[in-house]
């Protein structure tokens, strides 16, 4: 997937952000699920949290 301009999220990250926005935090992400780059799905969610695009809060 092509990347967006520098300093912004990649398209893959953007889609992941959209997918997780509003999802219950207890959702179990299968450990075998890898993204198209071979990165762990959960790692990428954690990256979104670490970079300040996603947070976990009370419903």
């Amino acid at each position: 997937m092509a990347n967006l301009p520098a300093k912004l999220l990649s398209v893959a990250d953007l889609l992941l952000l959209n997918e997780f926005d509003g999802r219950q935090a207890g959702y179990k992400i299968p450990s075998y699920r890898l993204d198209e780059y071979g990165y762990d799905y959960l790692q990428r969610v954690q990256k979104l949290i670490g970079t300040g695009y996603l947070e976990i809060c009370a419903a």
Partner: peptide, 23 residues
């Protein structure tokens, strides 16, 4: 005790809104 959810932050929401076409 409340259930927790993932939520886009202000920055995240801005990204989602300004790049809605990709989604």
């Amino acid at each position: 005790r409340l259930p927790k959810i993932y939520k886009a932050t202000k920055n995240g929401r801005r990204e989602l809104e300004t790049r809605w076409a990709y989604i």
